[in-house]
Design a protein around this nucleic acid. Structure first.
Lengths: 193, 193
DNA sequence: GAACATAAGTTATTCAGTATAACACTAAGG
DNA sequence: CCTTAGTGTTATACTGAATAACTTATGTTC
């Protein structure tokens, strides 16, 4: 029924996506050209333009699909009443990242060039806003959106650090760090001050 | 004595720097070309290459000079015994940013394309490592470099949020947020857990 | 399975930006 | 003043982005 049903289209898009992923993992995102991608995908140059506006758009599709699952998982675990167990939640997050580490390396390698990082921050921030809002104290000098933005950016920074550090502390250790350094300390700052 | 002493060189470099700054402020960093820069600077195209390898290198020079002062200021105030007054320190930081907001807008607009953000994070992280190390508790599950990285990235994220929010809470308010949300909560997490 | 529709391949062309070379011009400093 | 070094002018090569016209291949439908 859908336009995407054509198997030729699905095949071509998959080839282009896979080609971009493998290219980013082996060199700078900025130095990947459309010609590189189509050559790697074994597809005609012009075919790229029949499917995507730009490399950024192709990348966006790759990451949107890949991150959607993680977002859902974070949202599901934080949506429960008042952040039930941030440590376990954090463990799951880092285990998920461990599984799909390639995808996240790509995110940080290219986070760079696109408005993509801001997009991810906005999505994450919206999720954590639900965690922060009920705890909000009207005397607090910290606005809710500052707190949720802080959690979102800190989580991304922690993930990036972990990947750069070859995922050295275990996922469950990172879960503890996530709980203590990001969640609990932010909640503490919002409720107390 | 130095090679830079030639007034013609100093003038040309200054013209190129100013041109880049004004161009980034009025359009996307990525869409600024060398031709744009030399046209704005009223300088021959080839002259650019006689001074800089690339636009990134030119930008690096602009930001290095501009951020050096802030770094010194942060370092000076954190170097005192055990973070004497983070709130005042934070106020100074945000007042400084207010003064040179153009420079910081450029940093975040282009943070993007270059390995520049990582460089700034590394510098800041090294400064805050001195604050964190003495407080470090051997039972803590949070490594010192994770804590200092957390402070550095959180500060940058907070600055970026502030600029995006048109510098709406005052610099002194931001100083309080900096103290409560970033410094105190990180110290709390490192010493307690 | 023949006819049609649509995707993909081929080839050529235009355009913008990077990068360099050769040579003429002009300002700085001994 | 005269050498040195920086700058301007012009020309050129190269790469990647983007599009057009046309042909070939592959699904879908009757």
């Amino acid at each position: 029924m859908r336009s995407k049903e054509d198997p030729r289209v699905r095949k071509t898009r998959r080839l282009l996506r896979d080609a971009l992923v493998s290219l980013i993992l082996e060199k700078n995102y900025t130095s990947v050209s459309i010609k590189d991608i189509t050559a790697r995908a074994d597809v005609a140059y012009i075919t790229f333009f029949r499917h995507f506006e730009s490399i950024d758009h192709l990348l966006m599709e790759v990451l949107d699909d890949g991150l959607a699952e993680l977002m859902q998982q974070i949202e599901a675990s934080t949506a429960q009443t008042g952040t039930p167990n941030p440590e376990v939640e954090g463990k799951f997050i880092f285990e998920y990242i461990e599984q799909k580490s390639d995808l996240f390396r790509i995110l940080f390698k290219s986070q760079s060039v696109t408005p993509l990082r801001k997009k991810v921050v906005t999505s994450l921030s919206a999720i954590y806003q639900k965690t922060c809002s009920p705890l909000y104290n009207s005397r607090s000098c910290i606005p809710v959106n500052v707190a949720s933005n802080h959690i979102a950016t800190s989580l991304l920074a922690l993930i990036e650090w972990w990947l750069d550090n070859m995922m050295s502390p275990s996922a469950s250790q990172m879960g503890k760090i996530y709980k203590n350094l990001i969640i609990d300390s932010t909640i503490g700052a919002v409720t107390s001050s």
